[in-house]
Amino acid sequence: MTLSIAGVVARPKSAPPQQARKLKLPLRWISPIALVLLWQLASSTGVLSPDKLASPVTIAESAGELIADGQLGEAFAVSITRVFFGFLIGGLAGVVLGLASGLSRWGETLLDPPVQMLRTLPHLGLIPLFILWFGIGEEPKLALVAAGVAFPLYLNLHAGIRQTDPGLVEAAKVLGYSRFERIVHVVLPSAVPQTLVGLRIAFGTAWLSLIVAEQVNADAGLGFLINNAREFLRTDVVVVGLVVYALLGLTTDALVRLMERRVLRWQKR
């Protein structure tokens, strides 16, 4: 009897969570939608002035207009180019430094201390210096994005390499693999998961750096669009710009997650 009771008890234990999750997903949309409706109601009744925050409907209309007249597309292209080149420069620096200090004792001795010291600086606070060094054109913006990208990539690549299981390296050594082959077959692959974590953080900081950089004297790009809209109290356009920033961040994050799933297929899930 006891056994059969145990069986009955054990089964629902595994079944309901899945059902609950299926049920929960649409339920979780209730409050966000309610908030948007409330927001629209406040705007329509005049409780919320459009100077403070435009209504959802107005924002959607402005988004349509900005897309139609090409303003948004142009700003989008400018901003994404900045992130691309900033990421390229910072990524290259982070990877080269990370490899050098991860793979060689001397590299670590010489490179790691200064990098660790510099990373304690809040890199967004470097704007005044970057403006003095690079002026107010594209350069300080790229530099800020690059700085935001280089550090997380360096730190995670370095840590990933250092976390390599020495047992695996030994096994390859007995099989006659040279130092270079051991790096290629054992050390670098085992650093990949940690490096992908670094990549995701790097994308996050890249967008953050861009947003801050574009607040400073931009004459094109999403930041310019937002700042310009502020001058004319166009809160609708400001929100459209913010939404685009958010979507860009979500997109790159999703791309890295997708990459993780493909590259890290071997991991137990």
Partner: peptide, 15 residues
């Protein structure tokens, strides 16, 4: 030629 098997299998998990 020498081969060794350790206490832990020491397989490369990504292969």
């Amino acid at each position: 030629t020498v081969s060794i098997a350790f206490q832990q299998p020491r397989l490369l998990p990504w292969r």
